[in-house]
Amino acid sequence: MKAPAFSYMRAESVEHALELLSRHGDAAKILSGGQSLLPALNLRLAAPAILIDIGRLDELRGIDLRDNVVTIGALTRHVDLLASEEILSSLPLLRQAAAHVAHPAIRNRGTIGGNLAHADPASEFPACMLALDARMVIRREDGERRVDARDFFRGIYETALEPCELLVAIEIPRPQSGSRTYFHEFVRRSGDYAMTGLAALAHLDGAQFADLRLSYFAIGDRPYLARATSHLVGVAITGERIAEAQAALDAELDPPDDQQASAAMRRHFARLLLSRCVANVLERPELAMEAVT
C-alpha cells in the first residue's frame, strides 16, 4: 500500500527539531532512517500529520570513546556500527548484534536511535543496551535528561520518550578488559527479526562467573535480563548448575505465543541459549551437551 498524506519538514539543527516537536507534539513523528516508520506508514499502521526529518543532522552522527564511555550519536547507522574500529574493540557485543539486524540495504539507512526509539521487542539492539547497561541521552526544548536502558523500554513499541523529546545519543560504559560476550539468535531467514535471541556480557573470576548478564529478546514485550543467572555466579559450573539455572529461567519467563513462534518453542530456545552461552564463554563445549533440554 501507499503511505497516507502528511506534511514534511526538514530539521536544520537539533534545536530546530526540538522546536518543531514541541510545537506539533503528538501530531508529529521524527523521521530518521525511515526503515521502521515508512513500513508502518505504507501498511497504514500509523498516520502522523507531520514528519520531521532529522536525517541530515550530522551533529547526531558518530562514535566517540572518552573516559571509558562510548557515546554513539542517535543517527549512527547500523552499517556505521559494523564498520567502526571503536565498536569492534570496545563493544564487540554491539558489533556481533549489528550483523544480525536486517539486511545490507536496510542497514545502510537504519539508525540506532530510530531502532531504540521504535523498541521492537524482537530487536537486537535494545537487548544489547540492557546487557551493556547503556544510558539514553534525551533532549527536549527546555532541557536534557538521561534514562537507563532498564527504565527506557516500557513495552511493545513503547519507551520512556515523550512526544516532545528526541533521543540524541546513547552512552555505554566500556566493559572492563577481559569481559566476554556471547550473541546468538534463532531466525527463519538471516536478517529477519528473531524468534528468540540472547545478548550476553560476562566477567570471569578464574573458571567462575564474577558477573553474568543474559539479556533476552523476542521473549516478552521488551528485552529481558534473566534473574536465573544467580544460580551461576560465584559457583563451580557443572551440568547440574546449568540445569538448575534453566529451570529457574523457565519459571521466570512468560513468552508470547504468536505467528513467529509458540511460547513452548521460545522457552526451549531460551534454555538452549543459556547453556550454549555458558559453554561458549567458559570454553567448555561439553557443558552444552550435558545440559541439553
Partner: peptide, 13 residues
C-alpha cells in the same frame, strides 16, 4: 553509491 530500499525512502529524502 550505497544500496537502499526505494520503497522505504521518500523522494524528498
Amino acid at each position: 553509491g550505497e544500496i537502499i530500499r526505494s520503497c522505504l525512502t521518500l523522494a524528498v529524502q
